[in-house]
Design a binder for these strands. Sequence first.
DNA 1: ACCTGAACACCGTTCAAGT
DNA 2: ACCTGAACACCGTTCAAGT
Lengths: 183, 183
Amino acid sequence: VTTPAPTATPQSSPVATRRAARREQILDAAEAVLVADGVEALTMRRLADEVGMQAPSLYKHLRDKDDLLAALQERALASMGESLTAAGPDLARLAHAYRSWALTHPALYALATGVPLARDRLTPGIEDWAAAPLVAAVGGDEHRARAVWAAAHGLVDLELNDRYPPGADLDAAWTATIEAFGS
Amino acid sequence: VTTPAPTATPQSSPVATRRAARREQILDAAEAVLVADGVEALTMRRLADEVGMQAPSLYKHLRDKDDLLAALQERALASMGESLTAAGPDLARLAHAYRSWALTHPALYALATGVPLARDRLTPGIEDWAAAPLVAAVGGDEHRARAVWAAAHGLVDLELNDRYPPGADLDAAWTATIEAFGS
DNA sequence: ACCTGAACACCGTTCAAGT
DNA sequence: ACCTGAACACCGTTCAAGT
């Protein structure tokens, strides 16, 4: 079952569409700032500047900063889910896809997993959707799936936070993990 | 080999001792704020208030806020390492100790693992020391030890960040992890 | 030696006011 | 409908000045 990534764009009036487009444009700019300079650079003033307006104007398009972060989390989960889905059901390939996505999108990854996201601001089920390939890869056992997901998250999180000693062989750590959970 | 938790208190002059004591008192207050109200409550002004001075005065005892955070990380690693050492070499007991420590010290845990700590501000080797019980439990294989440590970190981090669906059976996820890595 | 008050350059956010 | 300028209550941090 391959459900497409949820895109919350119900049909509506042209003005609502314009508003939504502007919002999307702001989110694009936010993502660009995130990629270029990291989370700490993503301030409302910087974002406003990037999109060509004053900071208070942003609040016509975003409820507050948490709203912005939730929207970016949504994008991150969608993008990640697509990568995992594309990797197919093989555990080793999945693990590789997971790590690659995280390392090429460090700021988005931290945002997607590192903050206690407001579940009520995300489109329902997107988390499950993003994790579905993992569940499939371990044969549907949800406990095992959570264990694998946690192991992958831990490896990535520690790597992104520079937690390993300088010369550590992380490939070997990943291999040990994959072996432990059975190929 | 049971090396004691490093405590950086070389003998020195009485005035230096007084200064260090004051610093320790500030760190105690900081830890208390952390436990009581979380990281976001730990501001320099709040801390100064708690210890009975003005915010700028803190800078006579702390280089800057990162210095404060590094000192708290040090305390966290020491405390965690003690818990793990006390748990002994059994993997299941170690896992339980790891999870318990994290859940009873959520703010300290997040601080100890969640920020890319300045290694040069910590007493050297404290990370290795804290992780030593894990390495011992898996029989000295460092790759495997890193895999286990990452798995435990992932489970705890996702739990602390409310990443699991509301009714998720986390005990089962831990059990699956322990089984995967062999008791 | 230790502490304070005033200040600086930032934050997120609100609100009246403009078009 | 959309945007701005001024303002508020915060940050971390510096610095001259007091004792």
